[in-house]
Design a protein around this nucleic acid. Sequence first.
DNA 1: TAAATGCCTTGACTTAGATCAGGGCATGGT
DNA 2: ACCATGCCCTGATCTAAGTCAAGGCATTTA
Lengths: 227, 227
Amino acid sequence: MKNIRDLISHCPLFAGLPEDQLDSVRDIIIEKEYGKGETIFSEGDNGIGFYLVSQGMVKIYKVSFEGKEHILHIFGPGEVFGEVPVFTGKVYPANSEAIKKSRLLFLSREAFISLITKNPSISLNMLAILSMRLRQFAAQIESLSLKEVPGRLASYLILLSEEQQNSASVTLSISKGQLASLLGTIPETMSRILSKMSSMNLIEVNGRDIRLFDMDGLQDLAESGKL
Amino acid sequence: MKNIRDLISHCPLFAGLPEDQLDSVRDIIIEKEYGKGETIFSEGDNGIGFYLVSQGMVKIYKVSFEGKEHILHIFGPGEVFGEVPVFTGKVYPANSEAIKKSRLLFLSREAFISLITKNPSISLNMLAILSMRLRQFAAQIESLSLKEVPGRLASYLILLSEEQQNSASVTLSISKGQLASLLGTIPETMSRILSKMSSMNLIEVNGRDIRLFDMDGLQDLAESGKL
DNA sequence: TAAATGCCTTGACTTAGATCAGGGCATGGT
DNA sequence: ACCATGCCCTGATCTAAGTCAAGGCATTTA
Protein backbone atom coordinates (compact mmCIF):
# COMPACT_ATOMS: atom_id res chain seq x y z
CA MET A 1 0.00 0.00 0.00
CA LYS A 2 1.27 3.39 -0.96
CA ASN A 3 -0.39 5.00 2.02
CA ILE A 4 1.58 3.07 4.57
CA ARG A 5 4.86 3.70 2.90
CA ASP A 6 4.09 7.37 2.81
CA LEU A 7 3.13 7.51 6.42
CA ILE A 8 6.27 5.76 7.56
CA SER A 9 8.52 8.10 5.64
CA HIS A 10 6.75 11.13 7.07
CA CYS A 11 6.56 10.12 10.69
CA PRO A 12 9.39 11.61 12.69
CA LEU A 13 10.43 8.22 13.97
CA PHE A 14 11.59 7.04 10.59
CA ALA A 15 11.98 10.28 8.66
CA GLY A 16 15.22 10.48 6.72
CA LEU A 17 15.83 6.78 6.45
CA PRO A 18 17.09 5.46 3.11
CA GLU A 19 14.66 3.62 0.84
CA ASP A 20 15.74 0.11 1.71
CA GLN A 21 15.45 0.77 5.43
CA LEU A 22 12.00 2.19 5.01
CA ASP A 23 11.11 -0.99 3.22
CA SER A 24 12.49 -3.10 6.01
CA VAL A 25 10.40 -1.13 8.47
CA ARG A 26 7.33 -1.58 6.36
CA ASP A 27 7.93 -5.29 6.21
CA ILE A 28 7.48 -5.75 9.93
CA ILE A 29 4.33 -3.68 10.14
CA ILE A 30 0.88 -5.13 10.72
CA GLU A 31 -2.14 -3.00 9.90
CA LYS A 32 -5.08 -2.97 12.29
CA GLU A 33 -8.47 -1.27 12.35
CA TYR A 34 -10.31 0.01 15.42
CA GLY A 35 -13.85 1.36 15.73
CA LYS A 36 -14.77 4.39 17.82
CA GLY A 37 -14.59 3.55 21.49
CA GLU A 38 -12.69 0.33 20.90
CA THR A 39 -9.89 -0.50 23.31
CA ILE A 40 -6.40 -0.83 21.84
CA PHE A 41 -4.67 -1.92 25.00
CA SER A 42 -5.34 -1.76 28.70
CA GLU A 43 -3.23 -0.83 31.68
CA GLY A 44 -1.31 -3.90 32.78
CA ASP A 45 -1.24 -5.64 29.38
CA ASN A 46 2.10 -6.98 28.24
CA GLY A 47 3.99 -4.64 25.94
CA ILE A 48 4.17 -6.80 22.85
CA GLY A 49 4.76 -3.92 20.49
CA PHE A 50 3.93 -0.34 19.72
CA TYR A 51 1.66 1.58 17.38
CA LEU A 52 1.75 4.29 14.76
CA VAL A 53 -1.46 6.14 13.95
CA SER A 54 -2.30 5.97 10.26
CA GLN A 55 -5.81 7.39 10.37
CA GLY A 56 -8.12 8.48 13.14
CA MET A 57 -7.32 9.39 16.71
CA VAL A 58 -6.57 7.57 19.93
CA LYS A 59 -6.45 8.60 23.54
CA ILE A 60 -4.12 7.37 26.27
CA TYR A 61 -5.76 7.60 29.65
CA LYS A 62 -5.77 6.51 33.24
CA VAL A 63 -8.77 5.81 35.40
CA SER A 64 -8.72 6.86 39.03
CA PHE A 65 -10.11 4.92 41.95
CA GLU A 66 -13.47 6.69 41.72
CA GLY A 67 -13.66 5.95 38.00
CA LYS A 68 -12.69 9.45 36.94
CA GLU A 69 -10.79 9.34 33.67
CA HIS A 70 -7.76 11.46 32.96
CA ILE A 71 -6.41 11.78 29.46
CA LEU A 72 -2.63 11.78 29.32
CA HIS A 73 -2.30 12.13 25.57
CA ILE A 74 -4.22 12.28 22.36
CA PHE A 75 -2.49 10.99 19.25
CA GLY A 76 -3.39 11.61 15.63
CA PRO A 77 -2.00 10.54 12.24
CA GLY A 78 1.77 10.11 12.13
CA GLU A 79 2.21 9.82 15.86
CA VAL A 80 3.68 6.88 17.75
CA PHE A 81 2.43 5.50 21.04
CA GLY A 82 2.75 2.51 23.31
CA GLU A 83 6.50 2.18 22.78
CA VAL A 84 7.37 2.66 26.44
CA PRO A 85 7.03 -0.95 27.61
CA VAL A 86 8.64 -2.38 24.50
CA PHE A 87 12.14 -1.40 25.64
CA THR A 88 11.70 -2.04 29.29
CA GLY A 89 10.04 -5.37 28.72
CA LYS A 90 7.16 -4.39 30.97
CA VAL A 91 3.41 -3.81 30.81
CA TYR A 92 1.48 -0.88 29.37
CA PRO A 93 1.19 1.78 32.07
CA ALA A 94 -2.09 3.26 30.82
CA ASN A 95 -5.14 2.48 28.72
CA SER A 96 -5.60 3.25 25.08
CA GLU A 97 -8.78 3.61 23.11
CA ALA A 98 -9.74 4.85 19.66
CA ILE A 99 -11.82 8.02 19.93
CA LYS A 100 -12.82 7.72 16.30
CA LYS A 101 -12.60 5.01 13.69
CA SER A 102 -8.85 4.49 13.34
CA ARG A 103 -6.29 2.63 11.33
CA LEU A 104 -3.12 1.78 13.24
CA LEU A 105 0.20 0.27 12.23
CA PHE A 106 1.54 -2.23 14.71
CA LEU A 107 5.25 -2.98 15.21
CA SER A 108 6.03 -6.06 17.24
CA ARG A 109 8.72 -6.00 19.85
CA GLU A 110 10.95 -8.76 18.46
CA ALA A 111 10.87 -7.52 14.92
CA PHE A 112 11.70 -4.02 16.01
CA ILE A 113 14.62 -5.02 18.19
CA SER A 114 16.27 -6.95 15.42
CA LEU A 115 15.69 -4.05 13.06
CA ILE A 116 17.26 -1.53 15.40
CA THR A 117 20.27 -3.71 15.93
CA LYS A 118 20.91 -3.74 12.21
CA ASN A 119 20.20 -0.01 11.74
CA PRO A 120 21.60 2.22 14.48
CA SER A 121 20.32 5.37 12.79
CA ILE A 122 16.77 4.29 13.47
CA SER A 123 17.54 4.22 17.15
CA LEU A 124 19.04 7.69 17.03
CA ASN A 125 15.81 9.02 15.57
CA MET A 126 13.85 7.24 18.23
CA LEU A 127 16.00 8.72 20.95
CA ALA A 128 15.27 12.15 19.54
CA ILE A 129 11.55 11.47 19.60
CA LEU A 130 11.53 10.22 23.15
CA SER A 131 13.53 13.24 24.19
CA MET A 132 11.00 15.53 22.55
CA ARG A 133 8.19 13.83 24.37
CA LEU A 134 10.13 14.18 27.60
CA ARG A 135 10.30 17.90 26.94
CA GLN A 136 6.56 18.03 26.40
CA PHE A 137 5.96 16.16 29.61
CA ALA A 138 8.24 18.48 31.50
CA ALA A 139 6.21 21.37 30.13
CA GLN A 140 2.97 19.67 31.14
CA ILE A 141 4.20 19.05 34.67
CA GLU A 142 5.35 22.62 34.88
CA SER A 143 1.93 23.70 33.71
CA LEU A 144 0.05 21.57 36.19
CA SER A 145 2.07 22.51 39.20
CA LEU A 146 3.20 26.02 38.50
CA LYS A 147 0.27 27.52 36.64
CA GLU A 148 -3.40 27.86 37.33
CA VAL A 149 -6.03 26.71 34.88
CA PRO A 150 -6.38 29.98 32.92
CA GLY A 151 -2.63 29.98 32.38
CA ARG A 152 -2.68 26.40 31.14
CA LEU A 153 -5.49 27.19 28.75
CA ALA A 154 -3.66 30.24 27.42
CA SER A 155 -0.51 28.16 26.86
CA TYR A 156 -2.55 25.57 25.05
CA LEU A 157 -4.20 28.13 22.78
CA ILE A 158 -0.88 29.75 21.92
CA LEU A 159 0.60 26.35 21.13
CA LEU A 160 -2.38 25.57 18.92
CA SER A 161 -2.10 28.84 17.06
CA GLU A 162 1.54 28.07 16.37
CA GLU A 163 0.72 24.61 15.11
CA GLN A 164 -2.14 25.74 12.91
CA GLN A 165 -0.96 28.34 10.42
CA ASN A 166 -3.66 30.84 11.22
CA SER A 167 -2.32 32.82 14.12
CA ALA A 168 -5.49 34.75 14.86
CA SER A 169 -7.92 31.89 15.13
CA VAL A 170 -7.74 28.22 16.05
CA THR A 171 -10.01 25.20 15.87
CA LEU A 172 -10.13 22.64 18.64
CA SER A 173 -9.70 19.09 17.39
CA ILE A 174 -11.27 17.71 20.57
CA SER A 175 -14.34 18.54 22.60
CA LYS A 176 -14.14 21.13 25.35
CA GLY A 177 -14.74 18.44 27.92
CA GLN A 178 -11.76 16.48 26.65
CA LEU A 179 -9.70 19.63 26.62
CA ALA A 180 -10.62 20.18 30.25
CA SER A 181 -9.35 16.73 31.11
CA LEU A 182 -6.18 17.29 29.14
CA LEU A 183 -5.50 20.46 31.12
CA GLY A 184 -6.19 18.72 34.41
CA THR A 185 -9.56 20.29 35.18
CA ILE A 186 -13.28 19.67 34.64
CA PRO A 187 -15.77 20.85 31.99
CA GLU A 188 -17.51 23.34 34.30
CA THR A 189 -14.28 25.13 35.12
CA MET A 190 -13.25 25.09 31.47
CA SER A 191 -16.54 26.67 30.49
CA ARG A 192 -16.31 29.37 33.15
CA ILE A 193 -12.77 30.30 32.17
CA LEU A 194 -13.61 30.44 28.48
CA SER A 195 -16.45 32.84 29.16
CA LYS A 196 -14.29 34.90 31.51
CA MET A 197 -11.62 35.18 28.85
CA SER A 198 -14.29 36.13 26.33
CA SER A 199 -15.66 38.88 28.54
CA MET A 200 -12.14 40.23 28.87
CA ASN A 201 -11.89 40.37 25.09
CA LEU A 202 -8.95 38.02 25.03
CA ILE A 203 -10.79 35.52 22.84
CA GLU A 204 -14.09 34.84 21.13
CA VAL A 205 -15.57 31.37 21.23
CA ASN A 206 -17.75 29.93 18.52
CA GLY A 207 -18.25 26.25 19.14
CA ARG A 208 -14.87 24.69 18.46
CA ASP A 209 -13.54 27.77 16.71
CA ILE A 210 -11.74 30.22 18.93
CA ARG A 211 -10.62 33.61 17.71
CA LEU A 212 -7.59 34.97 19.53
CA PHE A 213 -7.98 38.71 19.88
CA ASP A 214 -5.18 39.61 22.21
CA MET A 215 -2.09 37.48 21.74
CA ASP A 216 -0.04 39.64 24.10
CA GLY A 217 -2.65 39.29 26.79
CA LEU A 218 -2.71 35.54 26.30
CA GLN A 219 1.05 35.42 26.43
CA ASP A 220 1.03 37.29 29.74
CA LEU A 221 -1.58 34.92 31.05
CA ALA A 222 0.42 31.88 29.97
CA GLU A 223 3.47 33.21 31.77
CA SER A 224 1.95 34.59 34.90
CA GLY A 225 -0.85 32.05 35.09
CA LYS A 226 -3.22 34.65 36.51
CA LEU A 227 -6.46 35.95 35.12
CA MET B 1 40.53 5.92 38.27
CA LYS B 2 39.12 2.64 39.39
CA ASN B 3 36.01 4.32 40.74
CA ILE B 4 34.94 5.65 37.40
CA ARG B 5 35.50 2.36 35.69
CA ASP B 6 33.42 0.68 38.30
CA LEU B 7 30.61 3.17 38.01
CA ILE B 8 30.48 2.87 34.25
CA SER B 9 30.20 -0.87 34.34
CA HIS B 10 27.40 -0.73 36.87
CA CYS B 11 25.21 2.04 35.51
CA PRO B 12 22.22 0.97 33.46
CA LEU B 13 23.28 2.96 30.43
CA PHE B 14 26.41 0.90 29.86
CA ALA B 15 25.22 -2.34 31.34
CA GLY B 16 26.30 -5.39 29.40
CA LEU B 17 29.17 -3.79 27.51
CA PRO B 18 32.34 -5.79 26.87
CA GLU B 19 35.59 -4.77 28.61
CA ASP B 20 37.21 -2.99 25.71
CA GLN B 21 34.11 -0.92 25.10
CA LEU B 22 34.05 0.13 28.73
CA ASP B 23 37.56 1.47 28.31
CA SER B 24 36.60 3.49 25.30
CA VAL B 25 33.69 4.94 27.27
CA ARG B 26 36.00 5.90 30.07
CA ASP B 27 38.27 7.70 27.65
CA ILE B 28 35.60 10.12 26.54
CA ILE B 29 34.41 10.98 30.03
CA ILE B 30 35.22 14.24 31.79
CA GLU B 31 34.94 14.36 35.55
CA LYS B 32 33.47 17.45 37.22
CA GLU B 33 32.85 18.50 40.80
CA TYR B 34 29.97 20.63 42.08
CA GLY B 35 29.41 22.10 45.52
CA LYS B 36 26.04 22.11 47.26
CA GLY B 37 23.72 24.62 45.66
CA GLU B 38 25.89 25.00 42.60
CA THR B 39 24.13 25.25 39.24
CA ILE B 40 24.93 22.57 36.69
CA PHE B 41 22.89 24.00 33.84
CA SER B 42 19.98 26.38 33.39
CA GLU B 43 16.80 26.22 31.34
CA GLY B 44 17.57 27.53 27.88
CA ASP B 45 21.28 26.66 27.92
CA ASN B 46 22.67 24.81 24.95
CA GLY B 47 23.06 21.13 25.63
CA ILE B 48 26.51 20.06 24.55
CA GLY B 49 26.41 16.78 26.41
CA PHE B 50 24.88 14.93 29.29
CA TYR B 51 25.80 13.82 32.79
CA LEU B 52 26.09 10.69 34.83
CA VAL B 53 26.00 11.01 38.61
CA SER B 54 29.06 9.46 40.25
CA GLN B 55 28.58 10.78 43.78
CA GLY B 56 26.11 13.13 45.41
CA MET B 57 22.69 14.24 44.28
CA VAL B 58 21.23 16.69 41.81
CA LYS B 59 17.79 18.16 41.28
CA ILE B 60 16.10 19.04 38.01
CA TYR B 61 13.58 21.83 38.48
CA LYS B 62 11.44 24.48 36.89
CA VAL B 63 10.79 27.96 38.18
CA SER B 64 7.45 29.71 37.79
CA PHE B 65 6.80 33.30 36.85
CA GLU B 66 6.62 34.31 40.50
CA GLY B 67 9.80 32.45 41.32
CA LYS B 68 8.11 29.39 42.79
CA GLU B 69 10.23 26.29 42.25
CA HIS B 70 9.00 22.82 41.33
CA ILE B 71 11.35 19.86 41.38
CA LEU B 72 10.81 17.49 38.46
CA HIS B 73 13.41 14.94 39.36
CA ILE B 74 16.14 14.06 41.78
CA PHE B 75 19.02 11.93 40.53
CA GLY B 76 21.58 9.96 42.52
CA PRO B 77 24.61 7.77 41.75
CA GLY B 78 24.42 5.75 38.52
CA GLU B 79 21.68 7.86 36.99
CA VAL B 80 21.85 9.83 33.76
CA PHE B 81 20.43 13.31 33.25
CA GLY B 82 20.53 16.24 30.85
CA GLU B 83 20.38 14.04 27.78
CA VAL B 84 17.32 15.65 26.20
CA PRO B 85 19.10 18.39 24.21
CA VAL B 86 21.71 15.92 23.01
CA PHE B 87 19.09 14.15 20.92
CA THR B 88 16.66 16.96 20.17
CA GLY B 89 19.38 19.40 19.22
CA LYS B 90 17.68 22.00 21.36
CA VAL B 91 18.24 23.63 24.72
CA TYR B 92 17.81 22.24 28.23
CA PRO B 93 14.13 22.36 29.15
CA ALA B 94 14.76 22.80 32.89
CA ASN B 95 17.35 23.82 35.45
CA SER B 96 19.77 21.60 37.30
CA GLU B 97 21.57 22.12 40.57
CA ALA B 98 23.60 19.97 42.97
CA ILE B 99 21.73 19.55 46.26
CA LYS B 100 24.83 18.20 47.92
CA LYS B 101 28.51 18.09 47.03
CA SER B 102 28.57 15.98 43.88
CA ARG B 103 30.91 14.38 41.41
CA LEU B 104 29.54 14.11 37.90
CA LEU B 105 30.81 12.46 34.74
CA PHE B 106 30.24 14.47 31.60
CA LEU B 107 29.82 12.89 28.15
CA SER B 108 30.01 15.18 25.17
CA ARG B 109 27.43 14.93 22.44
CA GLU B 110 29.77 13.97 19.61
CA ALA B 111 31.60 11.34 21.58
CA PHE B 112 28.39 9.72 22.67
CA ILE B 113 26.83 9.76 19.23
CA SER B 114 29.81 8.04 17.68
CA LEU B 115 29.78 5.55 20.50
CA ILE B 116 26.11 4.79 20.04
CA THR B 117 26.53 4.32 16.32
CA LYS B 118 29.19 1.69 16.86
CA ASN B 119 27.33 0.03 19.66
CA PRO B 120 23.62 -0.56 19.20
CA SER B 121 23.26 -2.09 22.64
CA ILE B 122 24.01 1.27 24.24
CA SER B 123 21.24 2.84 22.25
CA LEU B 124 18.84 0.14 23.38
CA ASN B 125 19.85 0.84 26.96
CA MET B 126 19.32 4.52 26.38
CA LEU B 127 15.93 3.86 24.81
CA ALA B 128 14.98 1.87 27.87
CA ILE B 129 16.13 4.64 30.22
CA LEU B 130 14.20 7.28 28.33
CA SER B 131 11.15 5.05 28.16
CA MET B 132 11.20 4.53 31.89
CA ARG B 133 11.65 8.20 32.49
CA LEU B 134 8.69 8.89 30.25
CA ARG B 135 6.69 6.47 32.30
CA GLN B 136 7.71 8.16 35.52
CA PHE B 137 6.68 11.48 34.08
CA ALA B 138 3.35 10.03 33.03
CA ALA B 139 2.85 8.79 36.57
CA GLN B 140 3.83 12.18 37.93
CA ILE B 141 1.35 13.92 35.67
CA GLU B 142 -1.34 11.47 36.68
CA SER B 143 -0.53 12.10 40.30
CA LEU B 144 -0.60 15.84 39.94
CA SER B 145 -3.85 15.98 38.06
CA LEU B 146 -6.00 13.33 39.62
CA LYS B 147 -4.78 12.87 43.14
CA GLU B 148 -4.71 15.21 46.06
CA VAL B 149 -1.59 15.77 48.06
CA PRO B 150 -2.16 13.01 50.67
CA GLY B 151 -2.61 10.53 47.83
CA ARG B 152 0.58 11.63 46.16
CA LEU B 153 2.48 11.34 49.39
CA ALA B 154 1.10 7.86 50.02
CA SER B 155 2.12 6.77 46.51
CA TYR B 156 5.57 8.17 47.08
CA LEU B 157 5.98 6.36 50.38
CA ILE B 158 4.83 3.06 48.90
CA LEU B 159 7.23 3.48 45.99
CA LEU B 160 10.04 4.21 48.43
CA SER B 161 9.25 1.17 50.54
CA GLU B 162 9.40 -0.96 47.41
CA GLU B 163 12.73 0.53 46.39
CA GLN B 164 14.27 0.23 49.80
CA GLN B 165 14.21 -3.35 50.99
CA ASN B 166 12.64 -2.61 54.33
CA SER B 167 8.94 -2.58 53.70
CA ALA B 168 7.89 -1.29 57.10
CA SER B 169 10.07 1.78 57.33
CA VAL B 170 11.66 4.16 54.87
CA THR B 171 14.23 6.92 54.99
CA LEU B 172 13.85 10.06 52.94
CA SER B 173 16.93 10.85 50.91
CA ILE B 174 15.84 14.46 50.57
CA SER B 175 14.51 17.11 52.92
CA LYS B 176 10.79 17.38 53.57
CA GLY B 177 10.75 20.73 51.84
CA GLN B 178 12.26 19.21 48.72
CA LEU B 179 9.80 16.36 48.90
CA ALA B 180 6.99 18.90 49.04
CA SER B 181 8.26 20.50 45.86
CA LEU B 182 8.64 17.12 44.16
CA LEU B 183 5.01 16.34 44.97
CA GLY B 184 3.84 19.70 43.72
CA THR B 185 3.05 21.31 47.04
CA ILE B 186 4.68 23.47 49.74
CA PRO B 187 6.45 22.65 53.03
CA GLU B 188 3.54 23.83 55.23
CA THR B 189 1.07 21.52 53.53
CA MET B 190 3.56 18.66 53.63
CA SER B 191 4.03 19.14 57.33
CA ARG B 192 0.30 19.25 58.04
CA ILE B 193 -0.37 16.10 56.05
CA LEU B 194 2.46 14.21 57.70
CA SER B 195 1.07 15.02 61.14
CA LYS B 196 -2.45 14.17 60.03
CA MET B 197 -1.29 10.80 58.76
CA SER B 198 0.58 10.27 62.01
CA SER B 199 -2.48 11.03 64.10
CA MET B 200 -4.40 8.51 62.02
CA ASN B 201 -1.76 5.91 62.85
CA LEU B 202 -0.88 5.39 59.23
CA ILE B 203 2.72 6.38 59.79
CA GLU B 204 5.17 7.58 62.39
CA VAL B 205 7.64 10.31 61.55
CA ASN B 206 11.06 10.62 63.08
CA GLY B 207 13.05 13.20 61.20
CA ARG B 208 13.76 11.62 57.85
CA ASP B 209 12.79 8.16 59.01
CA ILE B 210 9.20 7.23 58.45
CA ARG B 211 7.70 4.06 59.79
CA LEU B 212 4.79 2.74 57.76
CA PHE B 213 2.23 1.24 60.10
CA ASP B 214 -0.71 0.61 57.84
CA MET B 215 0.28 -0.36 54.31
CA ASP B 216 -3.30 -1.16 53.35
CA GLY B 217 -4.45 2.21 54.55
CA LEU B 218 -1.68 3.88 52.58
CA GLN B 219 -2.58 1.87 49.51
CA ASP B 220 -6.19 2.99 49.77
CA LEU B 221 -5.05 6.55 50.16
CA ALA B 222 -2.79 6.28 47.12
CA GLU B 223 -5.66 4.96 45.04
CA SER B 224 -8.48 7.09 46.27
CA GLY B 225 -6.36 10.16 46.88
CA LYS B 226 -8.48 11.06 49.87
CA LEU B 227 -7.57 11.33 53.50
C1' DT C 1 27.81 31.44 75.17
C1' DA C 2 25.50 33.95 72.04
C1' DA C 3 23.98 34.75 67.61
C1' DA C 4 22.81 33.15 63.13
C1' DT C 5 21.14 29.89 59.80
C1' DG C 6 18.48 26.15 57.97
C1' DC C 7 14.61 23.33 58.44
C1' DC C 8 10.33 22.34 60.20
C1' DT C 9 5.79 23.22 62.49
C1' DT C 10 1.46 25.58 63.72
C1' DG C 11 -2.33 28.80 63.43
C1' DA C 12 -5.55 32.15 61.10
C1' DC C 13 -7.05 33.49 56.78
C1' DT C 14 -8.05 33.41 51.75
C1' DT C 15 -9.02 31.52 47.37
C1' DA C 16 -9.08 28.60 43.12
C1' DG C 17 -11.51 25.34 41.63
C1' DA C 18 -14.28 20.92 42.53
C1' DT C 19 -18.93 19.28 43.43
C1' DC C 20 -23.79 19.29 43.04
C1' DA C 21 -27.81 20.50 40.65
C1' DG C 22 -30.36 22.20 37.01
C1' DG C 23 -31.26 23.79 32.25
C1' DG C 24 -30.37 24.83 27.20
C1' DC C 25 -29.69 23.31 22.62
C1' DA C 26 -28.24 20.68 19.08
C1' DT C 27 -28.28 15.94 16.63
C1' DG C 28 -30.07 11.48 15.41
C1' DG C 29 -33.11 7.68 15.78
C1' DT C 30 -38.05 5.85 15.89
C1' DA D 1 -42.87 15.28 15.67
C1' DC D 2 -41.12 13.25 19.60
C1' DC D 3 -37.89 11.81 22.82
C1' DA D 4 -33.16 10.44 23.88
C1' DT D 5 -28.35 11.53 24.02
C1' DG D 6 -24.30 14.19 24.05
C1' DC D 7 -22.26 18.41 24.92
C1' DC D 8 -22.19 22.69 27.02
C1' DC D 9 -23.40 26.50 30.25
C1' DT D 10 -24.66 28.68 34.87
C1' DG D 11 -25.37 29.23 39.73
C1' DA D 12 -24.78 27.96 44.76
C1' DT D 13 -21.92 25.80 47.88
C1' DC D 14 -17.89 23.50 49.80
C1' DT D 15 -13.12 22.30 50.54
C1' DA D 16 -8.19 21.46 49.74
C1' DA D 17 -4.49 23.76 49.85
C1' DG D 18 -1.92 28.13 49.28
C1' DT D 19 -0.47 32.52 51.76
C1' DC D 20 0.99 35.12 55.61
C1' DA D 21 2.96 35.32 60.03
C1' DA D 22 5.22 33.61 63.92
C1' DG D 23 7.92 30.53 66.63
C1' DG D 24 10.63 26.13 67.77
C1' DC D 25 14.79 23.38 67.50
C1' DA D 26 18.88 21.91 65.89
C1' DT D 27 23.56 22.82 63.97
C1' DT D 28 27.01 25.91 62.71
C1' DT D 29 29.83 30.22 63.32
C1' DA D 30 31.66 33.90 65.83
